[in-house]
């Protein structure tokens, strides 16, 4: 019998063109663009003579960043910790809840409306309640980070589990597989790309949650620092803190994206097939 449906063996993920093209595209261009942004910021401020209390120049912001580096670093560590703790909590609870919701249609329909209702509450509105309950410490920030970031994890895990092909489930069940086996062999591996995908969203949300809670009332953290600096009209510090926040955001996102790549490479098949 003729083998007409043979495909070529898997090709390696090919980079188009030589190495320097790849580097220019993936490293050079974002760096240039960011430098350009800073340049526009600097020149714009000087050209229109914007007062420092409204928008400090890029150079003044960087100078403030250097001058107050110790304070900023201390507060950054606090924010980082609260974010990561809230994020960890969101992963654990989100996974458990997601598996429960995706397991059974009944649980799904029972829990889903409540989850959506809960998710629609602006978390800023919840922070004062948390402060009322737990006082002005890091706990409200951790909980806010958790509350804002667990929802995408639940939804994605549940979707991954609930979308197992019915035929495949039939094949396995006909062999005598129990629900647990179907889940461990198929459902959970299948939902992993969804899960890791949701982590990228969740980490950014957790970060936002932590900072929002800090600006509403906390003893430490970048949010609190910004609040204090603003009250003292130290606007360059506010912007320096914002800079740190955005760099931290990129780093956290990049780390989760890297983890995702590692664990679910099979779902990101090469484009050349």
């Amino acid at each position: 019998m003729a083998q007409t449906d043979i495909v070529s063996p898997p090709a390696k993920a090919a980079r188009s063109g030589p190495d320097w093209v790849w580097h220019a595209e993936n490293i050079g261009s974002p760096v240039l663009f960011t430098l350009g942004l800073f340049l526009v910021w600097e020149v714009g401020c000087r050209l229109f003579n914007v007062p420092e209390s409204i928008l400090p120049t890029a150079s003044a912001t960087l100078a403030a960043l250097w001058e107050f580096r110790v304070v900023i670093f201390d507060n950054m560590i606090v924010t980082l910790w609260t974010t990561l703790l809230g994020f960890a909590l969101a992963i654990v609870i989100g996974l458990l809840l997601g598996v429960a919701v995706g397991w059974h249609r009944a649980v799904y329909s029972a829990v889903y409306p409540a989850l959506i209702a809960f998710n629609s509450i602006p978390k800023v509105a919840v922070v004062p309640i948390l402060i009322l309950w737990f006082g002005l410490g890091t706990v409200p920030a951790i909980l806010t980070a958790f509350l804002i970031s667990f929802f995408p994890i639940v939804v994605n895990v549940a979707t991954g589990l609930a979308t197992v092909e019915p035929e495949l489930e039939d094949v396995l069940r006909a062999l005598g597989a129990k629900k647990l086996v179907v889940m461990t062999k198929v459902g959970i591996p299948r939902s992993l790309p969804h899960f890791f995908g949701s982590l990228k969203v969740a980490i950014t949300l957790a970060f936002i949650g932590a900072v929002v809670a800090e600006t509403s009332g906390a003893s430490k953290g970048l949010g609190k620092l910004m609040l204090d600096a603003q009250a003292a009209f130290q606007v360059p510090i506010v912007f320096a803190a914002l800079l740190v926040l955005s760099v931290l955001g990129i780093l956290l996102y990049a780390i989760t994206a890297l983890i995702e790549q590692r664990f679910t490479g099979w779902a990101h098949r090469s484009q050349n097939h």
Binding site: E165, E167, L168, D170, G176, V186, P189, T264, A267
Partner: peptide, 18 residues
């Protein structure tokens, strides 16, 4: 109940991509 002396195949090959 489910019978394991049966093998099944459907239109959708539903192989596990991982």
């Amino acid at each position: 109940g489910p019978l394991d002396i049966v093998g099944m195949a459907f239109q959708n090959p539903s192989l596990l991509p991982w």
